[in-house]
Design a protein around this nucleic acid. Structure first.
Lengths: 190, 190
DNA sequence: TTTTCTCCATACGGCGGCGTACGGTAAGGT
DNA sequence: ACCTTACCGTACGCCGCCGTATGGAGAAAA
């Protein structure tokens, strides 16, 4: 009885599963033998696609960015209206999103890996720059806009990292509305 | 030549060093043999004070709380004046502190350990409750106070976890003042 | 059909770390 | 002077994981 050849693995297959393990248990637990077992193959396959474990880990942040945050940022730019309307749109989008993303695992990893830290910092900067521009557009000085964008964005980060994000969508929306109100109370409504 | 007996180790000595390793490299790197080496002893000592590695790790959150957050909260109670003055006192204290605390490592750990997650969540709640009470004292409704305390506290979390905390003390003070101003602009000054 | 290329299995050596067993030493009580 | 207690060193067996070497099996090309 000749063995069936299942769908052959490629790099992305390994990376996707590795990202899943990263989210579940952290970097230190994405090891090649358990990883191979979850994919139903042996390490022989792994060392065909990757030089070593470090090779896999180096490829992971780019893979994460490609799959997780590029779509989000594309969404943010495609909304019309004034700055506050755009803010509301961004908040609504984030409120609708599944709160269980991979950010927490990446941040945890970034605490102890400089390269990953740079990758995550780049993402943070990209996201914050969007909000900062909106506050400037609404009439704030660069400094004020930068600070208020920080206050805005760090709320997101804090809520995620503390696990305080409500499971209920409406509750998330309510909080978003309240945050928008408080942070734009003194700004001229367009 | 008889050996010198240096200061004998106790549990806290091990815990302090373990906390240091935790901060530097994460949980998965606090291992007993490297730990013993840093203390200049062997594992024989470790297994005298601890049942096993899990015993050490279990004791770590409580040790962290005892050393890192109890002093901060004490600050809030020991300052006279109205709620806003107390807020300013807490912020000043935090601004003076070394920004390189152990919170990040604990949060990273908490992502993958439920027990640690509960411990950290308890700390978050304690800290936020303090701020929440101050906002209520300043005249806000419970809901408004709770939300504004979140906004306050998550800023701290976000700044720390993104590594955005300025190294300069004065810059930290300036940000603290700005935050206080923004979050208490509509409140009656006592 | 034969060859070649892609992908995977198996087997192996090595290492770092865990926990245990046990022996040893300094200090203080009696 | 002895014994006990507290503390530490040493040596050992074990396991999970890494990376390598090597030998196929299947499919595609020749």
């Amino acid at each position: 009885m000749t063995r069936k050849r299942e769908r052959p693995q490629d790099r992305d297959t390994w990376l996707a599963e590795a990202l899943e393990m990263l989210r579940e248990r952290g970097v230190e637990h994405v090891k090649v033998e358990p990883l191979a077992q979850r994919l139903g193959v042996t390490k022989g396959s792994f060392y065909w696609h990757f030089k070593d474990r470090a090779d896999l880990l180096r490829s992971l942040p780019e893979f994460w960015e490609r799959r997780q945050t590029d779509p989000v940022l594309a969404q943010a730019e495609n909304t019309a209206g004034g700055p506050i309307e755009k803010m509301r749109a961004v908040l609504d989008f984030l409120a609708r999103e599944d709160p269980d993303r991979y950010d927490n695992a990446m941040r945890a990893w970034a605490q102890f890996d400089d390269e990953v830290a740079r990758a995550v910092a780049g993402i943070d900067e990209r996201r914050m720059a969007t909000v900062r521009a909106l506050f400037e557009e609404a009439g704030l000085s660069p400094e004020d806009a930068a600070f208020r964008a920080r206050l805005w964005y760090f709320y997101d980060v804090g809520e995620h990292v503390t696990g305080d994000t409500p499971a209920d969508v409406e509750e998330r929306r309510a909080r978003a509305a309240r945050r928008l109100e408080l942070l734009t109370a003194d700004l001229p409504r367009s």
